[in-house]
Design a protein around this nucleic acid. Sequence first.
RNA 1: CGGGGUGUAGCGCAGGUGGUAGCGUGCUUGGUUCGGGACCAAGAGGCCGUGGGUUCGAGUCCCACCACUCCGACCA
Length: 477
Amino acid sequence: MNGKLVEQITPRDKDFAQWYTDVVKKAGLIDYSGVKGCVILRPYAYAIWENIQKTLDGMFKQTGHENVYMPLLIPESLLQKEKDLVAGFAPEVAWVTHGGEEELTERLCIRPTSETLFCEHYHNTIQSWRDLPKLYNQWCSVVRWEKSTRPFLRHREFLWQEGHTVHATSEEAIEETIAMLETYAEFCEKYLAVPVIKGKKTEKEKFPGARDTYAIESMMHDGRGLQAGTTHYFGDTFAKAFDITFTDKDNKIKFPFQTSWGVSTRLIGGIIMAHGDDSGLILPPRIAPTQLVIIPISAHKEGVMDTAQNVKTRLLTAGIRAGMDISDQTPGWKFAEYEMKGVPLRLEVGPRDIAENMCVVVRRDTGEKQRVSLDNLEREVESLLDAVHDGLLERARLNLSERTYDAFSIDEMKEKLDNQIGFARAMWCGSEDCEQKINDKTTLRSRCIPFEQTKISETCVCCGEPADKMVLFGLQY
RNA sequence: CGGGGUGUAGCGCAGGUGGUAGCGUGCUUGGUUCGGGACCAAGAGGCCGUGGGUUCGAGUCCCACCACUCCGACCA
């Protein structure tokens, strides 16, 4: 190591925000554009998104959902139809006012979310119970004119998926809302190695226009929470606002019940902040664009390149996303580079290994090196990839539990927060007043009312009145 | 939207009291290296964030705007 003027990233525990920004830039995930909050997803970031998309899309389709595409622009009059939705989104909507030189007679909003478009379409296409359910999903970008922006966590334009479904009964719609939340939770744990807490949002925190909002909350390495996904049960409010009706089996005209649900490129921010360390990113193997990178050592020497190439071909054939760096950088430089990029496994082959029909495989999450025989390489790599996934999930679970505690007083909540212990489980009486007071006094907000309830005390942490709900409070991104 | 910081080569930075730009690294070429960010040599690279103003002359002074970043408020 020559140690001079090597590009360093800020240590994670010294300044988490700066560490995050450094990683995002230096791992080559994004570039900034000339418009605030609109970032360029470079190939590496987009490849991660594609893998997320591919997996989730498969899960949606397995449960009968179909993809559609709605227009980017929404006429103002259409957006106005559901009053809570308009009120909720008005401050952050971007408007198109001109077509060429001419001012439009009605201004058009760039979708901040597509409920209204789906509703209009449902109004036009649903007539009979036979048309239900409609299980639609859309992959697109939306625009919300946020005041402060951060890469992945808060963009003005961001990529996401929005599911919009219509059902004949409220029971079925509620079931869908919960099922999609379960899908998100499963995806986060099985593919992103991010454990989540499932729960319902309080009245204050729910989506504008929704009857009920549910969310999965995850814990970042600095003690702040990240809402990884949400699902909404709309009841029949949107159906009534947009006059969506169907004739049921009993020949009566009824309003159907709706849901919507979404996850965004914010998930990538979550991966970075849940797993990354002082050397950079650590990508969960199941969505990593490159799962293993081969570094030939002394590549000019007899047999090295042939062996390395052969190893790559074998791994690719086995379905492993293997890459190889044959550039003329030194091995040390390459090691640091792929650690920064978070590639889960690194494989070294050099003359010494080849002589013994071996190679060296190094785990990104633990740094653990092991010599592996070339004979059963595929099996070894597969099991190591699983081991990295399990290791990351385990570590993230530990982080979640270490930063979650049962709170019995407001003072305690403030004190724990100073030590980056960010999730407080506390009893709540159910009044919005208390929720607001807790926020004012501690800066913590209610994240959700977890499905898994423990009655940790009999009284509200704020007012002392009888309480029967345990709420998760936290600082959020 | 409030408060702080920043904008000069791809990246990191230096450019007292105004005089038309420099260092490190990276990049290109050639050579030596190659198991934890190698070394030598020769090159290329700049509308000094944008727009106004002051001035004979602005990277430098004044005003406005834009972007980035951190801390709040608001939101996925």
